[in-house]
Amino acid sequence: METNRLVKFVLKNSTAVLFVLIFIMFGLIAPRFFTAKNFQNIMSNASYIGIIAVGMTFVLLTGGIDLSVGSTMYLSAVVCGKLINEAGLPVFPAVMVSLLVGLMVGAVNAFAITRLRLVPFITTLITQTIARGFGLFITRSVAVNYPDSVTLMSTSKVLGFIPLQIFIFLMVVLLASIVLNRTRYGRQLYAVGNDLESAKKAGIKSDRLIASTYMISGLLAALGGFVTITQIGRVNAGFGSGDEFDAIAAAVLGGASLFGGIGTVFPGTVLGTVMIEMIQAGLVFANIDIYIQPIIMAAIIFSAVFIDSVRTTQIKKLERRNILKV
């Protein structure tokens, strides 16, 4: 019975186990990998895609998809930079406006999906094109530079030791986890993703919930965009493009289902994001040929998903009802 329990524990936490294994593996190859500083780097680099992936998790929970986050990031970052550089707005209000821009892109998605009944895939594909187009229109595709007051924020530490971007990431994760696990809204979201029709019958205002997820996703995309700006200081025309796939991959790697109802922010999406970032860092640490790096990356992600699917069937087997009397 005890071994059975152990097996179950390992299976249930296989993603975490794999995470630790990969960590140790890279550590053995490159001892410096084990430093706290490195882990901090990984976390801070994971923070922006992680923030976006948290928003994506909300959308995925309802069975939707948001392909527009990369463009939302770009548009809101452009607006923020332009406001600071050309309108002379202080950083804080400019950031607020840029978050508002993200929220608005999300609201457009929400409106099209819940009111006009467009398919999420097409809707967010359209907003992806239009939002980036609009950003290019504003900037004429010229890069937007941010003043030092913004880039200095990336070196600031909260409570003296947590870098700002990690702090924001942790706050987002904490808040999202509480919302999803402890509030009426969150639990109803899971219900909507599990069975939309039943949710409607149970009196859940499903349209409102679904709409809200796209707005959350848009808002967090803008926030993620800002977090990364503080680190890189400049927004060029390709900023954020393709990030939607990274965010989806992180969430799905963390166990979220594209059909809705399944997925967690913590540990799921967080683990997925950090894992991808960690593998990338490990490949650099191990100084592996740059042509081989993406191949190894793909192989590791494949094995992670593979193990996950095997464990799901194994857990099902273990938890199958025992109808024989003992």
Binding site: R187, Q188, S198
Partner: peptide, 13 residues
């Protein structure tokens, strides 16, 4: 909702 607990299902509304 199969992904929620019994208690959550009972008080979903």
């Amino acid at each position: 909702f199969t992904n929620l607990s019994v208690a959550e299902n009972i008080s979903i509304s």
